[in-house]
Lab assay of single mutants.
Amino acid sequence: MQYKLVINGKTLKGETTTKAVDAETAEKAFKQYANDNGVDGVWTYDDATKTFTVTE
């Protein structure tokens, strides 16, 4: 399945996608991506759209 990440950071904004077997695996990949880019915020997930959002 394909999952999307929407980033609403202080210095980084945008979107990225990943393919993963489940939401938990996608979340780990997205959190690593956010961490690598210095984004630390509040996470939400919408199962209907398979979209994670992180807001600083």
Results as ranks from 00 to 15, higher is better:
K50D: 02
T53G: 03
L12A: 07
E56C: 06
V54Q: 00
Y33G: 01
T49H: 07
G38A: 06
D46F: 04
K10N: 10
T16Q: 10
G41N: 01
Q32K: 14
A29H: 15
D36V: 10
V42F: 10
V21P: 15
F30L: 05
D40C: 12
V21I: 13
T49R: 06
N35V: 14
D46Y: 04
A26K: 00
V54K: 01
A48I: 11
Q32N: 08
T44L: 07
G14Q: 14
K13R: 12
E24S: 11
Q2W: 15
V21S: 10
G14M: 15
T51A: 03
A23P: 12
Y3L: 01
V21T: 12
A34D: 00
L5R: 00
E15G: 08
Y3N: 01
F52E: 00
A20R: 03
A29Y: 15
T53V: 07
T44R: 06
F30M: 03
T25A: 14
G14H: 13
K31Q: 07
Y33V: 05
N37A: 13
D40K: 13
L12Q: 09
K28P: 02
D46A: 04
T44H: 11
E24D: 10
T51M: 04
A20Q: 05
T51E: 04
E27N: 05
T51W: 02
T55C: 06
K4M: 08
A29F: 15
M1W: 13
V42E: 11
Q2M: 15
Y33S: 02
N8M: 13
N35Y: 14
E15M: 11
K13H: 10
V54E: 00
K50S: 06
E24C: 12
T55I: 08
K4H: 11
D36K: 10
G41H: 02
T53H: 06
E15P: 04
Q2G: 06
K13P: 06
L5Q: 01
Q2D: 13
E56K: 04
E24V: 12
A48H: 10
V6A: 04
Q32A: 12
K4S: 07
Y45G: 00
T18F: 13
F52M: 02
G9M: 14
E27W: 15
L5Y: 01
D47F: 08
G41M: 03
A20L: 03
T16K: 13
D47T: 08
G41P: 01
V39D: 01
K4Y: 14
D22R: 04
Y45P: 00
V21C: 10
V39Y: 06
Y45L: 02
Y3H: 02
T49C: 04
V6H: 05
Y45C: 01
T44S: 12
D36W: 07
G14W: 15
Q32C: 06
K19D: 11
E15W: 14
Y3A: 01
D40F: 15
N8T: 07
A26S: 02
L5W: 02
G9R: 04
Q2K: 09
T55F: 07
G38Q: 07
V21N: 13
T17E: 08
V21A: 12
M1V: 13
A20D: 03
F30T: 00
Y3C: 02
N8S: 08
T49Q: 06
N37M: 15
K10P: 08
Y45N: 00
A26L: 01
N35R: 15
A34S: 04
A20W: 04
A23I: 10
K4Q: 06
A29S: 10
G9C: 13
